[in-house]
Write a protein that binds this DNA or RNA. Structure first.
Lengths: 330, 330
DNA sequence: CTGTTAGCGCCTTCAT
DNA sequence: ATGAAGGCGCTAACAG
């Protein structure tokens, strides 16, 4: 696509390039006379400023990178939406990268983004330690970790209080008479899965409850497969996220049991569908859109030097009781 | 983040910047001796080339823009995934923009992307005529329209054969004994909604069937609300997409009817959830991932001058029969 | 208020 | 095989 430069605008308007730049950016006073001529020339040529030249000059690109596992997961889609809405409003643009939980992919994407001079990075990683990332952060790369923290990396982050989420969930289940638990968790490497695991175990032991725990991955299929081969049906099956819960419910019902009559099933996330699932899912709501927005906000503050470095934001989850759980006792 | 430039690498290695550039790009022979020194310097400094300077110099950025209504819609999330996977493999990067079906937003995003020197644009628009877009296309902006074409704009596109999709769907419903139809369609301005509408009407008239048709929008809520106020229950409710169908099913069941026993309900898209819905949804499958991939492929060919301008790709939809429809006659 | 100029980091002739 | 220099489009410092 042919593009005109500031030079051609200047020529057409019969002024110097600085004058054009000045009207473009309102960076210094320009007489009405010249301003009018420049504006006319800009319009006639259909001139658009080149952000690429501007970036080179200014050292900033107005672009933020976002590395996440998979946009196809509604959880991330909603987080991204929150981030993009905010960034757009602030004049930034978002480069989206799916890493598929692959460490090498992640490293490569990071290199690409750095070469593209992103001003900052939103990062939802595999959970594995990433030495390149650490190195870059030490060299001043602005990063906000989103939903998943990596142990040993000191940076800003936005997460949900998983401990609290698990606590209110289990408290509710205990209160309603559940005594025997199975927890079908997500990816082991993942920060949130680990926290939930720890909290779960602690709760179980504290209350001397019978339980089993398994790590799988955050997908419908994982939940389905796992539930299919479950030998004994507990009072409640806690799932690492809503997708797993969907799979579990379907598998359980195929085995001839009823949810929640024979077994309660819970999720984590509250993706938009969960309220429409059959049965509507009892789950721990994570403020997805808010997370994305908050992370973008935090990142821009850091990028723009407002000194919010190494700040952690912990959002509170909320228990949403629907119809996939029953009250065993009143 | 501090960055080193080619200049500093050159200095450290004791060579000229041209030599560094040559080893970086393998653009001309360099003696093993110097090459080794340069590579050493690069490593020690942690040097990364600046794509931004490169872009300025070369006039290409390796960045593709994607304007779409809403990434939160699983249909688009899957399309985007197809596109991003392909682009990434080819060394390109994707800027994601949600337009929310807002015409002004769309125009503004387009301006931003042009300023960012995107090499090409994937466009799933509101469906309204966009004169800025036309102007830019005429000036050489590379665009591939995805899923939605705009009347009066001549460009490349990737769509699904909606006519065919509607035909096979209705043929199936007729064959299975449905005689009275309601079509709850999506956004009126939308290319696919219009085509489906026309095809639907034609089919109904050809077969002298009783029917009603309504435009709403492509959401669960729209389907739910509309079905709630339905006076008479037809044999089949055809929905503009799967989300609408979910809403319809829920509303219908709340009214005390059974799907499919009292009424068949069909969707359009086959988003990943539809196979797990209760009842699993009979729908017209659109190859979402494939669409994104194909569009990206086509766009890159155009961008790289392989003369595929104004080529249209029409993918074939597929009828997926599940349990939200019944066979009234054998 | 306006114009001239250096330089952001890189690639690419053009010499040597 | 290597180096020097121009220029991509822009902003900002400087001069007037």
């Amino acid at each position: 696509m042919h593009r005109y430069s500031i030079k051609e605008v200047a020529k057409k308007a019969g002024v110097s390039i600085s004058t054009v730049s000045r009207v473009l950016n309102n960076s210094a006073p320009v007489s009405d006379e010249l301003r009018a001529r420049v504006e006319k020339a800009i319009k006639e040529l259909g001139y658009y400023p080149s952000n690429i030249a501007k970036s080179l000059r200014k050292g900033r690109t107005g672009t933020i990178g976002f590395i996440l596992p998979d946009i196809t997961n509604p959880f991330f889609a909603n987080v991204v939406r929150g981030a993009e809405d905010y960034l757009r409003k602030k004049g930034y643009t978002l480069i989206l990268c799916n890493s598929d939980q692959d460490k090498d992919q992640e490293v490569q994407l990071l290199e690409t983004l750095i070469s593209k001079h992103i001003d900052g990075l939103l990062f939802t990683g595999t959970g594995e330690f990433n030495s390149l990332l650490v190195e870059k952060i030490e060299k001043g790369l602005k990063v906000v970790f989103l939903d998943r923290i990596i142990k040993g990396i000191n940076s800003s982050y936005v997460i949900v209080d998983n401990r609290e989420g698990m606590n209110i969930l289990i408290d509710y289940l205990i209160k309603t008479g559940h005594k025997h638990f199975v927890f079908i968790n997500g990816n082991k490497e993942t920060f949130s899965a680990r926290i939930r695991y720890e909290t779960f175990i602690k709760k179980m032991n504290e209350n001397k409850l019978r339980f089993k725990h398994y790590f799988t991955n955050f997908s419908y299929e994982a939940g389905y497969k796992f539930a299919k081969k479950l030998q004994t049906i507990p009072d409640a099956i806690i799932c690492g996220n809503d997708l797993i819960a969907y799979g579990v419910i379907d598998a359980i019902e195929e085995k001839g049991y009823k949810v929640p009559d024979d077994v309660s099933v819970t999720g984590f996330d509250d993706i938009p569908f969960s309220r429409h699932y059959k049965p509507p899912l009892t789950t721990v709501r994570q403020p997805m859109y808010e997370m994305g927005k908050k992370a973008a906000d935090l990142l821009l503050k850091i990028v723009e030097g407002k000194k919010e470095l190494n700040k952690g934001v912990v959002l509170v989850p909320e228990l949403v009781i629907r119809e996939s759980t029953k009250e065993l006792v009143k």
